[in-house]
């Protein structure tokens, strides 16, 4: 196979990989866009949801896709609880003084450390995977020219569904109206009778529920391990910033760009070096266009 062919073939792989990145970043985009909280515990939350799917699969034999029904509501409540008990008190405390993003950032860094290492204590550092039906059957196109796991294809499609669902909730429902109002102007929304902190909690819960859905798709083809969220957490941040704050299509597009640049880049340099490219791209975009590719002004 010549170089051109392998590069061309890496493009669909990259897009599929990007779908998974996008799915993970979507939840963060909602949280970051609405509450302006830099949720560094996003990767930790992803990891927690993946371990829940793992437990359901190994103990009860429930496929992660089915497990969504159980895990997503739990993660939604977990997200609401984090906002209510950890972040809202800080927002209230600092609303009078100058806003100090450092403490909000720090509390999520602390939470992430606690979650990741709690999982490390319970499960150890071993890599686990789930040989589900979707992960062991393959989609083959042509004479084995393009082969990929079905679970990756499902993840790719799910990212669109998830993006649509979030877009629908935020743009077409009464709840979404409140969320948009709060994200535009917290004080004005409060004057209009919107319960700001409750809306924040719902938005945070939504974001975490979204990451749990992404976790279900990811656990079908990726290993489950306590530090699995570290890279994904950092990268989803960069994807969200790249795509523009709070922009749902932006998060998806940012995910595709990351997936493409890493997979196509891996054809020229080795795979581990390729993830360097996405960090480089992020830094360049931030220096040139600090509002992101799809960000408004």
């Amino acid at each position: 196979m010549n170089m051109l062919q392998s590069v061309l073939l890496s493009i669909p792989h990259g897009i599929i990989q990007g779908g998974a990145y996008g799915a993970i970043a979507l939840g963060l985009s909602v949280i970051f866009g609405v509450t302006r909280v830099t949720n560094f515990a996003h990767g930790g939350m992803l990891m927690v949801s993946m371990f829940m799917f793992f437990e359901l699969y190994t103990r009860l034999g429930i496929d992660p896709y089915l497990g969504i029904i159980v895990v997503v509501p739990i993660m939604y409540l977990f997200g609401m609880a984090v906002q209510k008990f950890l972040i809202t008190p800080l927002l209230k405390r600092e609303s009078g003084t100058t806003q100090d993003p450092a403490s909000l950032l720090l509390i999520t860094v602390g939470l992430n450390n606690a979650l990741v290492n709690l999982a490390m204590m319970i499960y150890g550092a071993n890599y686990r995977n789930m040989p589900t039906k979707a992960s062991t059957s393959y989609l083959t196109i042509g004479d084995a020219v393009f082969v990929t796991q079905w679970s990756k294809v499902i993840a790719f499609l799910a990212s669109f569904l998830l993006a649509f669902a979030l877009w629908f909730i935020i743009n077409k429902t009464e709840l979404g109206k409140r969320i948009r109002a709060v994200s535009l102007n917290r004080d004005a929304a409060a004057i209009c009778g919107v319960n700001v902190y409750k809306t924040y909690a719902i938005a945070f819960g939504l974001g975490i529920a979204a990451v749990a859905v992404a976790g279900a798709c990811l656990s079908e083809f990726y290993f489950v391990q306590p530090s699995v969220g570290d890279t994904f957490g950092t990268k989803s941040f960069m994807i969200v910033v790249l795509g523009g704050l709070g922009s749902i299509p932006g998060a998806l597009i940012g995910g595709f760009i990351f997936g493409l640049i890493e997979t196509v880049g891996a054809q020229f340099i080795n795979t581990t070096s390729a993830s360097m490219l996405s960090f480089l791209l992020f830094m360049i975009v931030l220096f040139v266009k600090p509002n992101g590719l799809m960000g408004k002004n």
């Binding site: 950890l86 403490s103 720090l106 860094v109 602390g110 606690a114 990741v116 290492n117 306590p226």
Partner: peptide, 19 residues
């Protein structure tokens, strides 16, 4: 027996101190 306990403590202490 408990890898990660030390970093877990870091995490919890961070949250407590921020709070």
């Amino acid at each position: 027996e408990l890898p990660g306990l030390n970093l877990f403590i870091y995490g919890v202490v961070t949250m407590l101190v921020v709070f």
